[in-house]
C-alpha cells in the first residue's frame, strides 16, 4: 500500500473542505515572486496549482516549478497538458514528478496554441485528457503505454478539469463520466459565476464519488471581465457581474466581495474552492477568511 503523501488527498478523504489557488510560474528563471506568494499562501491554502504554459503562453516548466515548491514544503498541484507533449514526454514527466515526490497532478487537454505567445508552433495533442488519465493508471500499474515494465511504480493523486457552466451540459457530461472512469479523484472546475449551474453539476457528479473543487475567479474591473469574455476560452463573466463592477466605486474591492460571495455560494455544492487570483495573490487570504 502506498503511503499517502498528499495533504490535499488526505483532507478530501477525511471530508474536510479544501482550498487551492493558482500561482503562475515565471516567464524566465527568477522564481522569487512565485516562491514568495506560494510561501505566503501556504498557511491558508492546501495546495498550489502550478500552471503548465497557461493560455499557451510559454513559461518555466511546471514540473520544475512544482519541485521548487515541494522543496520548500509547499504542496504543489502539478498541472500537465497534452498540448506540448506527446505520449513519451507525458509519461516521462509524470515519472519525473513521482520520483521527485510530487503526487498531486491535474491532467488537462490544454488551451489551444493559438491563444498564446507562440501561436506559430505545432500543437501536439497526441493524447487527450481522458487518455492522459488512463495513461496515469497504466503507469500506476507498473507499466508504460507500450506494456514495458517500470523500475519503480509511481502513485498519483489525480484530478481533472470540468466546466460546469458550459452548455449544452449533457455534451460535457459524457466526457466527465469518462474522466471519472479513467481514475480522476477530483474535478477542479473552471471559474463558476452561477451557483445554480454548480448545483446541477454537483448533482450529476455525485454518483461517481469524484470530489469537486469549485473554481472562483477574482475580477478587478469591468474591463478585465470583458477581456476575459473575449479572450479566455471557456470563461464567461455574466452581464450582471460586469455591471456590478462597472458601477462600483472601487472595482478591485468589489471584485474581492464578488469572489467571497461566490465562494460561499459554491461551498454547499463542493468539497473545496479553487481560487484563481490572476496576479492578485495578496487577497487570497481574505477570500479564504470569508469562507470560514
Amino acid at each position: 500500500m502506498t503511503e499517502i503523501t498528499s495533504n490535499l488527498e488526505r483532507k478530501l478523504a477525511r471530508g474536510e473542505f479544501v482550498l487551492t489557488a493558482e500561482v503562475c510560474p515565471p516567464k524566465g528563471t527568477d522564481c522569487s515572486d512565485f516562491l514568495k506568494w506560494s510561501r505566503t499562501l501556504a498557511g491558508v491554502i492546501d495546495a498550489i496549482n502550478v500552471t503548465d504554459n497557461q493560455g499557451a503562453n510559454m513559461r518555466i516548466s511546471p514540473l520544475a516549478a512544482s519541485l521548487i515548491l515541494h522543496r520548500e514544503g509547499v504542496e504543489p498541484l502539478f498541472q500537465i497538458t497534452c498540448r506540448d507533449r506527446n505520449r513519451l514526454a507525458l509519461q516521462s514527466d509524470l515519472l519525473g514528478a513521482a520520483a521527485l515526490g510530487i503526487r498531486n497532478v491535474l491532467a488537462l487537454t490544454g488551451d489551444h496554441i493559438s491563444f498564446g505567445d507562440h501561436r506559430e508552433g505545432k500543437a501536439v495533442f497526441d493524447l487527450d485528457s481522458v487518455q492522459l488519465l488512463e495513461s496515469m493508471k497504466v503507469l500506476e500499474s507498473g507499466f508504460d503505454l507500450s506494456g514495458k515494465k517500470l523500475a519503480g511504480t509511481p502513485s498519483f493523486f489525480v484530478g481533472a478539469a470540468a466546466a460546469p457552466e458550459a452548455e449544452p451540459f449533457e455534451l460535457t457530461l459524457f466526457k466527465l463520466r469518462k474522466k471519472a472512469a479513467a481514475g480522476a479523484k477530483f474535478f477542479q472546475t473552471q471559474a463558476v459565476f452561477r451557483p445554480e449551474k454548480m448545483a446541477r453539476f454537483a448533482d450529476a457528479v455525485a454518483p461517481s464519488g469524484v470530489k469537486i473543487i469549485a473554481g472562483v475567479l477574482l475580477l478587478k474591473s469591468a474591463g478585465m471581465a470583458r477581456y476575459i469574455n473575449k479572450n479566455i476560452p471557456g470563461l464567461t463573466v455574466p452581464d450582471e457581474i460586469v455591471a456590478e463592477l462597472e458601477q462600483a466605486a472601487n472595482p478591485a474591492e468589489t471584485g474581492v466581495e464578488i469572489a467571497c460571495r461566490l465562494a460561499n455560494a459554491l461551498k454547499p455544492y463542493s468539497d473545496g474552492i479553487h481560487i484563481m487570483a490572476m496576479g492578485r495573490e495578496e487577497v487570497i487570504p481574505e477570500i479564504a477568511q470569508a469562507l470560514k
Binding site: 487527450d128 485528457s129 487518455q131 478539469a161 466546466a163 457552466e165 455534451l171 460535457t172 476560452p233 471557456g234
Partner: peptide, 9 residues
C-alpha cells in the same frame, strides 16, 4: 477523441 474540451461553449 473523447469529447469536447473545456473551451467548448
Amino acid at each position: 477523441l473523447n469529447g469536447p474540451c473545456g473551451g467548448m461553449d
